[in-house]
Design a protein around this nucleic acid. Structure first.
Length: 470
RNA sequence: GGAGCCAUCGCCAAGUUGGUAAGGCCGUAGAUUGCAAAUCUGCUAUUCACCAGUUCGAGUCUGGUUGGCUCCUCCA
C-alpha cells in the first residue's frame, strides 16, 4: 500500500505500527447543521481507504469523532431554544443516516467531545504541569507554541506576517500570536459550562476545538513509542491550524507523534469555488438524496482521486449514473444465479490500483473493461454459465471493495417506481407484446411512446421486454 | 500581504525511478433489432496553458509567464 502523506508531501509505502493492523482517525463534523456534499466526500474517501485495507487483509480500527461542543453549537442552542444535547443528537443521527445512504460503513469508534471530557482535562492538565500551556487571568488555557520546537512540522508554515496576525483574534494575554485555546472559561451564565474547577487547576468552561481530537485519540488508541495511530485524516482545510495544533498538543503531552501518516481529501466545489457555509453555496446531502440515489452519489463523489478538488456538476453526475448503469446491466445479464469465485487477475488489478494511494480512476476503468470484455464474451456465447458465475463474483468483489454494485439489478433500475406505476407499465408492456405478435407495429410504437412518457425506457430481449427507469 | 496546490481530447479524468498520451460521457460509421433500446465492433489528442532550459529523449525535471483554486478566520 502506497499512501500520499500530506506532511512529507510524497507517496510513502505504508508500514503499520503493528503488523496486520491499521488505526485510522478521521476528523468528523461539528454537529450544528446538516451535512453537505463536502462531508460526504471526506467520509467517502476514508471509507474507501478502510475498505481497501480490509481487502488487503488488514485489521482496521476506524474512529470518527463528533464535535458536539463548540461556539457555533452554543450559538445555535441560544437561537433555537433547544438543549445542546437535543440539537447535537438530532444532527448526529441525521449525519449517520445520510452516510448510511451513501454506503459508508460506520466507524468502529464514534467519540464525542462531551463524552471525552476527562481525557481532555487530563491532557490539558499535563500540558499545564509541563509548563507548555498557561492559564490566563480569565481562566482560559492556551497552548504556548513557542515551547514546541517542532511546531510547524505538519503544515510547514513559517513565521507569521502582519496580515496574518491582524486576522487572529485579539487577546493581549496570549504569549505568542499562534498560541491557541485549549480551554475556554465560562464567561457568562448563558455559557455552557463543564465543572472542572474542583479537579483541575483551571476554571470551569469548555474545551477548545483542537484538544478534543488529541485527547480522544490518546483515549482510544494505543500506539508504540513513536506514534499513537497509523493514519490521521480529514479535509484539506484541517491541515492548518487544526492538525498542526493537534500534533503539537499530543507531541508535548505524550512525548510521541500523534500519527505516522496524514491524509487530506480535496474539496467539493460548486462552480469552481469551495463549498462552505460561509459562502452559502452548500449543497446539503439531505437535498441531494431526495433527487439522486445514494449509490449513484457515492459512485460520482468517489469517481475522482480523493486529493483532487471535485467540481460538482449535475451533468457529470448523470455520466456517472450511466457508467454505474452499465455495471448493473451486466449484472442483470448474468442474474439470477450463484457466484463462483472472483477472477484472480481482475481482483489483483483492482487491488493494485487501490493500493496506489486509492487510484479510483484506474479501478473504474478496469471495471469498464471487465464489463466490455464480459459482454463481448456473452455475445459470442450467451450460455456461458461459468462466465456468468465468475462475473457475479467479480461484481460482489467490486461491491466489497468500492461499495457499489451490490443491489439486485432489476430493482436498481426501478428505484423510485411505486407499485401503481409498476402495474401500469407492466400492463402497457403486455399489450405491446400482444400488438407485436400481431405485427401491429403502429400500435406497439404508440404503446412504447406512452411508456416513455411515464419516464420508463424499455428494451426487447430474447427473454421478453425489460424496462428501466429512464 | 504570506504559504501551497493545479492547468492533459467538446466535457470528466488517469498518467511520481523522464522513453514516446488509460478509461468514461458526447459524437460518428457499422453489426444486431419490425423500428427502437440495450449490447458489440471501428473511428475520434503527433499532443499535454504558454515561453525558455536540462536531456539521446519531458505531459512527467528546472526557471519564468498567464489563468484558476485553497490555506493563513469556523469549515470535510
Amino acid at each position: 500500500m502506497q499512501l500520499f502523506d500530506s506532511v512529507q508531501k510524497t507517496k510513502l509505502p505504508f508500514e503499520p505500527i503493528y503488523d496486520g493492523k491499521v488505526s485510522i482517525y478521521v476528523c468528523g463534523p461539528t454537529v450544528y447543521d446538516d451535512a453537505h456534499l463536502g462531508h460526504a466526500r471526506a467520509s467517502l474517501a476514508f471509507d474507501l481507504l478502510s475498505r481497501t485495507f480490509k481487502a488487503l487483509g488488514f485489521q482496521v480500527t476506524m474512529a470518527k469523532n463528533f464535535t458536539d461542543i463548540d461556539d457555533k453549537i452554543i450559538k445555535k442552542v441560544e437561537e433555537s431554544g433547544k438543549s445542546m444535547k437535543e440539537l447535537t443528537s438530532f444532527y448526529i443521527q441525521r449525519y449517520l443516516e445520510e452516510m448510511d445512504a451513501l454506503g459508508i460503513a460506520r466507524a468502529d469508534i464514534e467519540p464525542k467531545a462531551t463524552e471525552s471530557l476527562t481525557a481532555i482535562e487530563q491532557m490539558i492538565q499535563i500540558l499545564i504541569d509541563k509548563d507548555i500551556a498557561y492559564v490566563t487571568s480569565t481562566g482560559d488555557v492556551y497552548f504556548d507554541t513557542s515551547k514546541d520546537s517542532a511546531y510547524g512540522n505538519i503544515s510547514h508554515r513559517v513565521a507569521d506576517d502582519k496580515a496574518t496576525l491582524s486576522r487572529v483574534e485579539h487577546n493581549s494575554e496570549k504569549r505568542n500570536p499562534k498560541d491557541f485555546a485549549l480551554w475556554k472559561a465560562c464567561k457568562g451564565s448563558d455559557d455552557i459550562c463543564f465543572d472542572t474547577a474542583s479537579t483541575t487547576s483551571f476554571s470551569s468552561g469548555r474545551p477548545g476545538w483542537h484538544i478534543e481530537c488529541s485527547a480522544m485519540i490518546e483515549k482510544h488508541f494505543k500506539g508504540n513509542e513513536q506514534y499513537t495511530i497509523d493514519i490521521h485524516g480529514g479535509g484539506a482545510d484541517l491541515l492548518f491550524p487544526h492538525h498542526e495544533n493537534e500534533a503539537a498538543q499530543s507531541r508535548c503531552a505524550t512525548g510521541h507523534e500523534l500519527a505516522k501518516y496524514w491524509m487530506h481529501n480535496g474539496f467539493v466545489q460548486i462552480n469552481g469555488e469551495k463549498m462552505s457555509k460561509s459562502l452559502g453555496n452548500s449543497f446539503f446531502l439531505k437535498d441531494a438524496l431526495k433527487v439522486y440515489d445514494g449509490e449513484v452519489l457515492r459512485y460520482y463523489l468517489n469517481s475522482v482521486y480523493y486529493r483532487n478538488d471535485f467540481n460538482f456538476s449535475e451533468e457529470e453526475l448523470q455520466t456517472s449514473k450511466k457508467r454505474l448503469d452499465k455495471l448493473y446491466r451486466l449484472k442483470k445479464r448474468v442474474s439470477p444465479g450463484k457466484s463462483s469465485s472472483v477472477n484472480k487477475e481482475f481482483k489483483k488489478a483492482l487491488l493494485d490500483a487501490m493500493s496506489d494511494d486509492l487510484n479510483i480512476s484506474i479501478s473504474l476503468s478496469l471495471i469498464d473493461e471487465m464489463i466490455a470484455t464480459t459482454n463481448d464474451a456473452l455475445d459470442a456465447n450467451p450460455k456461458d454459465k461459468a462466465l456468468k458465475k465468475e462475473t457475479l463474483a467479480n461484481i460482489e468483489f467490486i461491491d466489497t471493495l468500492l461499495g457499489f454494485g451490490g443491489k439486485e439489478p432489476f430493482s436498481y433500475f426501478q428505484i423510485g417506481v411505486d407499485e401503481n406505476l409498476k402495474n401500469k407499465i407492466e400492463t402497457l408492456i403486455s399489450e405491446r407484446t400482444k400488438a407485436k405478435k400481431e405485427k401491429d407495429f403502429a400500435r406497439s410504437d404508440t404503446l412504447r411512446d406512452e411508456i416513455l412518457e411515464l419516464g420508463i425506457s424499455i428494451m426487447d430481449t430474447a427473454d421478453g421486454t425489460l424496462w428501466e427507469k429512464a
